[in-house]
Structures are given as structure tokens and as C-alpha cells.
Amino acid sequence: MDLIGYENYFWLSTALFSIGILGILIRRNMIILLMCIEIMLNAANLMFIAFAYKWGNMDGHIFVFFSMLVAAAEAAVGLALMVLIYRKFKTVDISYLDKLKF
């Protein structure tokens, strides 16, 4: 029996994704939140690669390639914002960022 099938990878990817969600919901440090987002992105990427392997089609690789690219850009801008927020509020705790409301 070959474990390296799309099904096992589906479970793995789903678990990773849920861990990312969990992290987002229970942590307050913004940088940890960013990390969790990266985990979720990687879960999705893993799924792409697994299905690419399954169908023998390399388009999945391309998608992963672009998703990494976007993730890198996101990290750059996100971290810049975070630095800005830290300078302004002296904290990266999202619980204190509740000014944006009516």
C-alpha cells in the first residue's frame, strides 16, 4: 500500500489548516498570527502539490509558485505595517487594536 496518495495528503493538509485557524483564534500576538497564516497557506500549497502528483499535471506547481510569491509580498508589507503599529501603540497585541469602529 502506498501512503503517498492524495487522500493522506488531504488529511494532513486539513489538519495543518485547522491548526492555523486555531492559532489565529487563540493567540494575541500579531506576529504569531502572521505565522499561522503562513501555515494555512502552506496547507493549501501542499494540497496543490499532492493533486498535481495525482493527476500528473504540473499546473499545480505553478500555482504554488505564485502563492509563495504572494505570501512573500504579504509578509513584507504585513511586517512593515506591524512595525508601524508597534511604534504607534507600543504593542503588537491585537486586543488593544480596537480603535477602528463606529
Partner: peptide
């Protein structure tokens, strides 16, 4: 419904999920 928008990002994330 204004109360839903309390400005707290954590809660927003929860609603989102």
C-alpha cells in the same frame, strides 16, 4: 447591530471563521 462592530480584531476573526 453596532455592538457587533466593537473594533476588536479577535472577535472579527472569530466571526470570520
Amino acid at each position: 447591530f453596532q455592538r457587533v462592530q466593537d473594533g476588536n480584531v479577535e472577535n472579527y476573526l472569530l466571526y470570520f471563521v
